[in-house]
C-alpha cells in the first residue's frame, strides 16, 4: 500500500484515492488561443519519468480533495504532498500541513 499524506486527512492508504495522472500538464488558459500542438500536449503527452513524478490523486473515498503528490516511480516512495496548484519540486507546499490532521493512519 502506498501511503499518501492527504493535506487534510493525513496519511492514508492509496486505495482511498483515485489516480488522475501527470500534474505538470497545464490546461491552456485561453482555449481558443492554444495551438493544436499545445492541446495535443495537454491531452496526450506525459512526463512519465523514472524517479520523482508530480501527479494528481483525488482523495475520493475521503475528503474528495485533489492532492498533488511527488512520488518516486521507481520506489513508490511519496516524497511530498500538497494542493493541486503547489509546485512540490520548488519546495513549496500546501497551506494545510499534516500537523493539523489528527486522524490519519499514523499514530
Amino acid at each position: 500500500m502506498i501511503r499518501i499524506n492527504c493535506p487534510y486527512c493525513g496519511l492514508r492508504g492509496h486505495d482511498e484515492f483515485s489516480y488522475i495522472g501527470d500534474a505538470t500538464k497545464q490546461r491552456p488558459a485561453s482555449p481558443a488561443d492554444a495551438t493544436a500542438a499545445e492541446w495535443h500536449d495537454f491531452v496526450y503527452i506525459r512526463d512519465n519519468p523514472r524517479g520523482p513524478h508530480q501527479e494528481i490523486w483525488q482523495h475520493i473515498q475521503g475528503c474528495r480533495a485533489f492532492v498533488r503528490v511527488l512520488r518516486n516511480t521507481l520506489t513508490h516512495e511519496v516524497l511530498a504532498t500538497g494542493l493541486p496548484q503547489d509546485d512540490l519540486l520548488a519546495g513549496a507546499s500546501g497551506p494545510a500541513k499534516t500537523e493539523e490532521a489528527k486522524t490519519g493512519e499514523a499514530s
Partner: peptide, 13 residues
C-alpha cells in the same frame, strides 16, 4: 462527479 470536482479544484479554482 469526479470530473466536475477535478475542473473546480485543479483547473478552474
Amino acid at each position: 462527479m469526479s470530473h466536475m470536482e477535478e475542473y473546480l479544484q485543479v483547473h478552474w479554482p
